[in-house]
Design a protein around this nucleic acid. Structure first.
Length: 910
RNA sequence: GGGCGCUUAGCUCAGCGGUAGAGCGCCUCGUUUACACCGAGGAUGCCGGGGGUUCGAAUCCCUCAGCGCCCACCA
């Protein structure tokens, strides 16, 4: 027992009402300061590792994090209690675009712009912001009770992780798996950076399909009609493609058309890409502004001028030499007005001009998917630029194989299909971003354009000297890396890689990664690829994928819908334990969690119930007693609850091992409330308040044993209240509950007999209660229970349990009764016996008759159904023998019960 | 266009070949010395529709419908 616990225990009884705010922060601080969260590489224990998905350093905790953290903390506490050397690695992510956006917004409010400030000043400002708000999320994780090893906290831009990033970049480059290329990228015109395919979101947009007439060269009056949704890109057209099989255009292949507005001669090419069914059957080819057109352009060796700049404005720079006046088709003066015009303004201007020239054949309404930047929300512009790419296809192969062979397993398994589908068709990963906040790419350009990819500037200069024979000035690539590039290294960079640290050897690979399905591609896939490539081993053995947290009606939470729930506010209102228990109990596999205040509120009742059960124990002088040996329990009550505790241990352990937190939560709830509170404590009351002796000793012994068991079983998901009670009661030699071992089942003597006896007792009391309630007997009326047709054992049991029966069934006595029924009787069938309650003057005989008839009809119908089944020769001959046997027993039981009910009915028929 | 998931009590969900379940809500009763954030009891289901496999289907297969999500070349 710790000194603190002893002082507290001596000082006060448990408060009548539970107030989590009174102990949660104190307990957390105690855990953290005592090193309870700290992994211990020197221990001989087997490690258990979870890497937290690093939240945005400047972010704050939302319900999704709360679910993520609850699952991870429950698992890590469970394994820690099982004796594993648990490492839950904390840290935060620099979140390139997101953070830069926030800081730029702050600057805008001050009337400043990052370009005016310059890169260095801007980065200083971001670091300053990180310093100011960087502690929020970690504070909030602590508030949730997360037992992260804060001594090892990392940040994706700290020196160690930056070194890992440079090492990976340089190595992949040397291996030819990372290269610079000029191709189309998804360009976000708002942030003016390239983004990866994954950061693009398709949105259905209602637009138009414009059919434009392109005059055929040398055939006045003949037009080739192309259909487009993006007329503004036509200035960059360098061909029109038709399908080689399409007879309508066969004669035009190899000829030229005149590009309206520009006046450029462009060829008509035959390409299977052109779909005769779509549009007009002829498609304009704009290689610099469309991914498909780019491919067509490559096949036909077409030029690819860009006509939109980084901001999405029209630019004529690359087509200047090609424009020419073409009467009735193109006018350089009009073209000049387009320069610098925003893309959608330009669309309008171009359409107006085409209209004027009578070059619009028709306009059809058209709904189509338009790619948008997932953060900026603006339409993405395919743009021809130089970027850095990772050869993801090569890296993906071993990752796919690792999942195929089960080295890494997804839970639930169905997500493996999602993973495979994406990984097997993976595209080169564009990793460069035209941002300032992030890991600057370790590439330097020589005066001749030669690229030096090196870990440091000094190494780059040295390489340049070797190449040029003298010192040259190098220019560093200004771009930074995709945030996911560094998060992809998280499972090993946090452990010290590229240095071969003891931690790296011990805690890699991790045991389980817990995350939402929304970042399987972004993050899980990248960790798999990079982890396997650089560590030679998968980064984690299991990937536990959970659903999204939604609101009560199943809607995604969003600020704009105003349905966002703040987990910290919920934790303050109901306690972190109640919130955690709620999240865990709804976290079924592959299911979204619908969270509502009411649910948290009703689960708080469970926490309170536990608190009150502990108070009851305290009031009855129940205290930890290590001299009590559960294996030597002799009373049926003690044996029964200890045995039920064994079952609870088995259920909870199996559920946690299978990542079924919903089952784990349900098992805890059932055992604590249903078995311990509703039955054990109630049945134990007479013994607890009765005379000294074995009954009392064992009631108390079993109570303290099982309460301790419940605290240990519940601790992973409800760490605070369980620790508080553990402390206050002074359980356990190790002091804190967090350091206590996970419970093991104990061998209980005579468990079967105890179970049979208690099952009978529970059934007996329940039946009597049902009858009393149904015929509306108030609890204040107590009556004798007259038992007819009972075996000797039943009567012996009734005698043994007479006190609890008196209390709980509101009875004066239990007696054999074989004569005629007393007047005004209400009856219940329990096993072989019929219990009669003499209630003359209290019971409504008609109501009792109706009740018994209904009961009788129900049992009889059941019996008929079973009899029918047994009458089927196919069933008796084909079904498994034990099933047939069981069915026969059920029939016998139902028939006997029906007979007893009929007898009971006949007794009051008169 | 391709793929995945879901559809079971009023609500939220479990069960996934052998007697349809839980929690909440609802109704009735209740100042039994832990708890009204409580106790006791009760009612409520063509287990989305149709077809098939099977002695037996909520459970397996096919099909249809509705809802949700992911992926996919903006003619």
């Amino acid at each position: 027992m710790t000194r603190g616990a002893a002082v507290r225990q001596a000082s006060a009884m448990l408060d009548k009402t539970l107030s989590p705010a009174g102990f949660e922060p104190r307990l957390y601080q105690g855990w953290e300061e005592s090193g309870a969260f700290t992994a211990n590489p020197a221990s001989g224990a087997a490690p258990f590792t979870i890497m937290i998905p690093p939240p945005n350093v400047t972010g704050s905790l939302h319900v999704g994090h709360a679910l993520d953290v609850t699952i991870q903390d429950t698992l890590i506490r469970f394994r820690r209690m099982q004796g594993r050397d648990a490492l839950w690695q904390p840290g935060t992510d620099h979140a390139g675009i997101a953070t830069q956006m926030v800081v730029e917004r702050l600057l805008a409010a001050e009337g400043k712009d990052r370009r005016e400030m310059g890169r260095e000043a801007f980065l200083d400002r971001v670091w300053q912001w990180k310093g100011e708000s960087g502690g929020t999320i970690t504070r909030q994780l602590r508030r949730m009770g997360a037992s992260l090893d804060w001594s090892r906290e990392r940040f994706t831009m700290d020196e160690g992780l930056s070194e890992a990033v440079r090492e990976v970049f340089v190595t992949l480059h040397r291996q030819g798996l990372l290269y610079r290329d000029r191709r189309l990228v998804n360009w976000d015109v708002k942030f003016q950076t390239a983004i990866s395919d994954l950061e693009v979101e398709s949105k259905e947009v209602k637009g138009s399909l414009w059919h434009l007439r392109y005059p055929v060269e040398g055939q006045p009056g003949r037009f080739l009609v192309v259909a487009t949704t993006r007329p503004e890109t036509m200035l960059g057209d360098t061909a029109v493609a038709v399908n080689p099989e399409d007879d309508r255009f066969r004669d035009l292949v190899g000829k030229h058309v005149v590009l309206p507005l520009v006046g450029r001669r462009i060829p008509v090419v035959a390409d299977a890409y052109s779909d005769p069914e779509k549009g007009s059957g002829a498609v304009k080819i704009t290689p610099a502004h469309d991914f498909n057109d780019f491919e067509v352009g490559r096949r036909h060796d077409l030029p690819s001028p860009s006509v939109l700049d980084a901001e999405g404005r029209m630019t004529l720079a690359e087509i200047e030499g090609e424009t020419r006046a073409e009467p009735g088709v193109a006018d350089p003066a009009f073209l000049a007005t387009l320069a610098g015009m925003e893309r959608f303004e330009a669309r309008k201007a171009i359409l107006a001009e085409l209209e004027r020239l009578e070059l619009i054949e028709k306009i059809e309404p058209h709904t189509h998917a338009v790619p948008h930047g997932d953060r900026s929300g603006v339409p993405i512009e395919p743009r021809l630029t130089w970027q850095w790419y990772v050869d993801a296809a090569t890296l993906a192969k071993p990752a796919v194989e690792a999942v195929e062979t089960g080295k890494t397993q997804f839970v639930p398994k169905q997500w493996e299909n999602t993973f495979f589908a994406w990984m097997r068709d993976i595209q080169p990963w564009c990793v460069s971003r035209q941002l300032w906040w992030g890991h600057q790419i370790p590439a330097w350009y020589g005066p001749d354009g030669h690229i030096f990819v090196e870990r440091t500037e000094a190494e780059a200069l040295a390489a340049a000297r070797a190449r040029y024979g003298d010192d040259r000035e190098l220019t560093r690539d200004p771009d930074v890396l995709d945030t996911w590039f560094s998060s992809g290294l998280w499972p090993f960079s946090t452990l010290g890689w590229p240095r071969q640290t003891p931690e790296l050897a011990r805690y890699y690979p991790g045991d389980v990664l817990v995350t939402g399905f929304d970042i399987i591609f972004f993050w899980v896939a990248r960790m798999m690829m990079l982890g396997i490539h650089f560590m030679g081993e998968v980064p984690f053995k299991t990937v536990n994928i959970h659903g999204l947290v939604r609101d009560e009606r199943g809607q995604k939470m969003s600020k704009s819908k105003g349905n966002v729930m703040d987990p910290l506010e919920l934790a303050d209102a109901y306690g972190a334990d109640a919130l955690r228990f709620t999240l865990a109990s709804f976290a079924g596999p592959g299911r979204d969690v619908r969270l509502g205040r009411q649910k948290v509120e009703s689960n708080r009742a469970f926490v309170t119930k536990l608190w009150n059960a502990a108070r009851f124990c305290e009031m009855n002088g129940i205290a930890p007693d290590r001299s009590f040996d559960p294996m030597k329990a002799s009373t049926p009550l003690a044996r029964w609850i200890i045995d039920a505790g064994n079952a609870a241990i088995a259920e909870a352990t199996a559920a946690l091992e299978a990542y079924r937190l919903d089952d784990y939560a349900a098992a805890l709830y059932r055992f604590t409330w249903g078995s311990f509170c509703d039955w054990f404590l109630e049945l134990a009351k007479p013994a607890l308040t009765g005379p000294d002796g074995v009954e009392k000793d064992e009631a108390k012994g079993a109570a303290q044993h099982v309460l301790g068991l419940i605290l240990r079983l519940a601790h992973p998901v409800m760490p605070y209240v369980t620790e508080e009670l553990w402390d206050r009661f002074g359980y356990g030699p190790e002091g804190s509950l967090i350091r206590t071992s996970w419970p093991e089942p104990v061998a209980v003597m005579g468990a079967d007999a105890a179970r049979a006896e208690l099952n009978w007792l529970v059934g007996f009391i329940s039946e009597v209660r049902t009858v009393r309630a149904e015929v509306n007997v108030p609890p204040s009326v107590t009556v004798p229970l007259l038992v007819q047709g009972a075996s000797g054992e039943t009567m012996a049991r009734a005698a043994r349990w007479i006190e609890p029966i008196r209390r709980m069934a509101r009875a004066t006595e239990v007696a054999s009764h074989e004569g005629p029924a007393p007047a005004g009787v209400a009856q219940a069938v329990v096993g072989e016996a019929t219990v009669m309650l003499p209630l003359e003057g209290v019971v409504d005989l008609a109501a009792e008759r109706a009740r018994l008839s209904k009961e009788h009809a129900k049992v009889e119908a059941e019996a008929r159904k079973i009899a029918q089944k047994l009458a089927n020769p196919d069933f008796t001959s084909r079904a498994k023998e034990e099933v047939v046997e069981e069915t026969r027993e059920r029939l016998a039981g139902a028939e006997a019960e029906a007979a007893r009910l009929a007898a009971a009915l006949s007794r009051i028929a008169a």
